[in-house]
Design a protein around this nucleic acid. Structure first.
Lengths: 341, 341
DNA sequence: GTGAAAGCGCTAACAT
DNA sequence: ATGTTAGCGCTTTCAC
């Protein structure tokens, strides 16, 4: 069933059918109705490839997800998928490992799939202009920004929280309660991405509260995975350096860490307070409920798509959006033992 | 940069370039090398739409996900995405709500995007042949089957566990420990899908162990979401009907239920045992670790794609695959209080 | 082994 | 308001 068949069925020309299909105004109501009826009756669906070929612009928006292990992304993906859909575009999703290059991947997809735009979910924060050159369609970095780079606001769009500041707030909170021996559980301390940003926020908070940082209190899990976080926490405890609180860069890792602490005989928060960043819905249902800095994940996804479509459809240029994170108090934080509270 | 440009660059015809690009044998080594070189140098990427248009078959495989709230799907999606990718296809993902019709959605996508095949992740188990007619490409039902329908193994492909039997095993285990008052937390009892299947397994297990089912012990959350599960569990407790154990159709719901029980002053498993179905990795990190029937999610995703590609590429017809679920012992189950153990 | 040419289904001038 | 027609970039006969 092609546009020709519909045209023949209605006794009109293909261009008239095309006009109806594309909601052009210059068609008489009678003809329009007849065509619409024929389309309905014959279950005709336009051939997308042909439309894309001739208009040399598709309806595909790419989603490049880096590091699927983080459950924080699933909510965002849901929202992004829905938003793209509602706007009448098609989402083409690609996942890559944390060692692959998202820009490279996006560049290839852009050409192969004729993408109109790209959402990068998770990535490095140190892009250079040079590196970004292969990407020629609008794109937006969702959940991270260019903190380690020096790209102007006109060079890329980002929607994120201030990761350094968020970590800073979390750790400051621990300090305010009297904690001085505060461990950090990160993925890496120098990956030029979110883990490093939050780690730096941790260091800055310690410094501002006059706490000497202790390398023995920094645990690198190597990923955002549960297993790695569990192992790293046990090793941290086994290391023997005492601490009364932990700052953890992701909720999922924190859940594993709490388990590790308890398996080592340390009760949370009595023996060790735990504060994290992300604000997974699930974190409110574990025991103890996790104290965490919530990222507005739904909004993050929705705004990313909104900005992207604004660019695609020419309504605006690049934009940077920094959303507020917000403390969600749980039961995993308490003053250190023996503190005069 | 089009195929014409490459042809001009090499001083050959477009058909020769096409042959090289498509790895046809009838090209002289010298010409092939020259073309390949030109392609590389000019960063030429074939226009996918044109290829699809002319060959009327794309490289797109659809993934229709129904009910994103279930975190059980995230692992599967990851695997499905990777598998599709590795096979050289493109994944086009679409999410729909639990009230939308996945078949309808698949049918539209099939035509619009010229899909080669479809993976349905989650759906009803009562498809009829009539209903399936709009789908003309190979498809596979991942994580569910046709238990409520009567379609022969030649009419559709499925990869799933035996949901009824899995629930039966879980509940039998509770019975074997001496539990007689066993509550069930489901999404719906009559949705012709997984929730109903597992609910039926629960009923069957009760019957086989001589336990009278009590409607007051069945809580319908209305979804797989955490909040609904939490609320439904609290209402169940508030209802006043006593019970010493709960069977819960999904890990995520169980996590919320455990919290609800504890918030009502009931300790798990001392006051109430909890057993679930899914086997999320996370369930091993909560307190108490969840006793659950593990679905082999990775395998489920991988096999679904394998079967789909086998069909797409004509290596086989429809197939049904029932994978084994497996008990993962946790700390959330114990004999009822006062049981002579 | 290579080239010429006919479309694939559609949109967008350009006519009328 | 409607029809005619020329491609979009590619694959694929069919000649040579």
């Amino acid at each position: 069933m092609t546009i020709k068949d519909i045209a023949r069925l209605c006794g009109v020309s293909v261009s008239t059918v095309s006009r109806v299909i594309n909601d052009r105004p210059d068609v008489s109501p009678a003809v329009r109705a007849a065509v619409l009826e024929a389309v309905r009756k014959s279950n005709y669906i336009p051939n997308n490839s042909a439309r894309v070929l001739v208009s040399s612009s598709s309806d595909a928006v790419g989603l490049v997800v880096r590091g699927l292990s983080n459950p924080f992304y699933s909510d965002i993906i849901k929202v992004i998928g829905r938003s793209i859909d509602e706007a009448g575009y098609t989402m083409v999703m690609q996942q890559i490992g944390s060692r692959e290059d998202e820009i490279q991947c996006g560049a290839v997809m852009e050409r192969e799939k004729k993408l109109r735009g790209i959402v990068f979910l998770g990535g490095r924060s140190d892009y250079t202009a040079e590196e970004l050159r292969p990407i020629t369609v609008p794109f937006v970095c969702c959940s991270y920004d260019n903190s380690f780079g020096s790209l102007g606001a006109d060079r890329l769009s980002t929607v994120s929280i201030d990761d350094g500041q968020t970590a800073y707030s979390a750790v400051s909170r621990l300090c305010a309660l009297g904690h001085r021996r505060i461990a950090a559980l990160v993925s890496e301390t120098d990956d030029r991405s979110i883990s490093e940003l939050r780690y730096r926020g941790y260091l800055r908070a310690l410094a501002d509260h006059g706490v000497e940082p202790d390398p023995a209190l920094v645990a690198c899990a190597g990923s955002f995975g549960l297993e790695d976080a569990y192992r790293a926490t046990r090793e941290l405890v086994a290391g023997g350096a005492g601490f009364s609180a932990m700052f953890i860069i992701a909720d999922a890792m924190a859940i594993a860490a709490v388990k590790a602490l308890e398996d080592c005989g340390r009760e949370v928060p009595r023996d060790c307070s735990v504060i994290a960043v992300d604000g997974l819905p699930l974190s409110q249902y574990i025991h103890p409920t996790l104290t965490t800095m919530c990222q507005p994940s739904e909004r993050m996804g929705a705004e990313s798509v909104r900005i992207l479509l604004d660019m695609i459809e020419g309504r605006s240029g690049n934009r940077r959006l920094v959303l507020e994170s917000e403390l969600r108090g749980g039961a995993s934080v308490a003053p250190p033992r023996g503190a005069a509270d």
